[in-house]
Design a protein around this nucleic acid. Sequence first.
DNA 1: TACAATATCTATCGTTTTAGTAGTCTTTAG
DNA 2: CTAAAGACTACTAAAACGATAGATATTGTA
Lengths: 138, 138
Amino acid sequence: MLSKRCKYALKAMVCLARVYQKGHMTIASIAEQENIPKKFLEQILLELKRVKLVNSKKGLAGGYYLVKDPSEVSVADLHRIFDGPIALAPCVSLNYYEPCDDCLDEQTCYLRHQFIQIRDKTRKSMSEATLQRFIENE
Amino acid sequence: MLSKRCKYALKAMVCLARVYQKGHMTIASIAEQENIPKKFLEQILLELKRVKLVNSKKGLAGGYYLVKDPSEVSVADLHRIFDGPIALAPCVSLNYYEPCDDCLDEQTCYLRHQFIQIRDKTRKSMSEATLQRFIENE
DNA sequence: TACAATATCTATCGTTTTAGTAGTCTTTAG
DNA sequence: CTAAAGACTACTAAAACGATAGATATTGTA
């Protein structure tokens, strides 16, 4: 399951994708439209700004807007930012590799092979779910 | 990511799968072999017994053993037991359906379609990772 | 029959994560 | 100058996670 943070981030990103290169949206308008607590959304958008997926303009008539093309941002990206590795275990993660503390020898670990297969398929399906796709399906 | 509970459960199940219809294993021997805290594993095996994936024999020469064939238990099953829904949101879960609290109208939810596609692919890859497969890859 | 090895049950606990809320400060268009 | 916007810092309640502790029940074997 996605955390609420991640789901809210996705919804906000889809909102911004709809006005990509056409305009911007305020935190308040996204929050209201998507039924997200405003102050919580504020934090989420700040994080998205930190990782350079969005940018913002302060002051009157300010707001947030997408930096990348909607076809270049996917659920996989947001999952990694807010919910961490897509893989089932740290030792098979490409982006967040870490040895497992209970695993004595990684090379002979009998979980590895299946975990890698699941990871590859999950990565693929999450990467295919781009913001663009979400908009197309409306 | 899988929780430790779930990963430990999987390891224990694979251990039991190796001796399926040949014998049983004690909590202590699984814990030692797989580097799992014994008392924690104890709870996990009790849960697996509750859902009828394993059974046990008390007393001297007792232990745990698989109830189902190793080809009939998969990562998907264990994920559902210990880590909940495989789907990215409760509203697209087949086994744990619940409406999302931030979703105003499920029928017109623009996340649904992509989420269902991801769910189906993830379910498939996790269901294919049966205990049997883990053993074959050794 | 006693005992040792096993599983079972119930409770507790420290830490981290989650999902927020509150309040203040900064920037900027009009 | 001011109202409307984002930025920043701090805090908090509740739940989940990853265990640990201790007492009880069962059973094969000597």
